[in-house]
């Protein structure tokens, strides 16, 4: 299991690096699709079918939005000049990455190894969920019963984002510059 996930993650990393370095914005957007759909396969292998369904729908919507934006504007990636300032930035970035990596190595020492997770916190949810919520799907039980207000807040956020996007797209801008 660990090997399979590692191979898919390797493909996802290659896709991510290509997406960041592509000269054409359209191919960058499509390469981001590799990462998103690779994530769907990982979710299926990790026994999370609900997540896989949601992720495949949302990845498709994101791709459609991004392709629409790119086709409506320009496909050219910018030229980045290489000078002394970018060298300083690269060194700073490398130091920050090394620091983050060090702290991450310390942090994962306290995690259970993959597949040996103990259901310490989820025990009451798993044991009593079917009788309490009447839903045989535990994820749905958590989302729509134990944490129903959380889901309500999520719906409000979605609505607000849709309103914000609509407002931004309908506004008439000032013709200056």
């Amino acid at each position: 299991m660990e090997l399979t996930i590692s191979i898919i993650l390797g493909f996802m990393i290659i896709g991510a690096i290509y997406a960041i370095h592509a000269k054409d914005l359209l191919s960058a957007v499509i390469a981001m699709g590799i990462v998103g759909y690779g994530l769907v396969i990982c979710f299926l292998l990790l026994k999370a079918p609900d997540l896989a369904i949601v992720q495949i729908v949302i990845e498709t919507i994101t791709l459609v939005i991004m392709v629409a934006v790119v086709l409506d504007s320009t496909r050219k990636e910018l030229e980045l000049p290489f000078d002394r300032k970018s060298l300083v930035n690269m060194v700073t970035g490398f130091v920050i990455f090394a620091g983050l990596f060090y702290f991450f190595l310390h942090a994962i020492e306290h995690l259970d190894p993959l597949g040996m997770h103990s259901l310490r916190m989820a025990e009451p949810y798993v044991n009593g969920a079917v009788e309490l919520t009447g839903s045989i799907n535990l994820v749905t039980g958590v989302l729509f019963d134990f944490r129903a207000y959380d889901t309500l807040g999520e719906a409000v956020i979605l609505y607000t984002a849709a309103l914000g996007a609509l407002t931004l797209l309908r506004m008439k801008g000032k013709k200056t510059v």
């Binding site: 990790l46 026994k47 999370a48 609900d50 997540l51 997770h117 259901l119 916190m121 989820a122 949810y125 798993v126 969920a129 535990l138 994820v139 039980g141 958590v142 989302l143 944490r147």
Partner: peptide, 8 residues
């Protein structure tokens, strides 16, 4: 069963 809390 796998842990449902991170999935939610």
């Amino acid at each position: 069963y796998v842990d449902p809390l991170p999935q939610a």
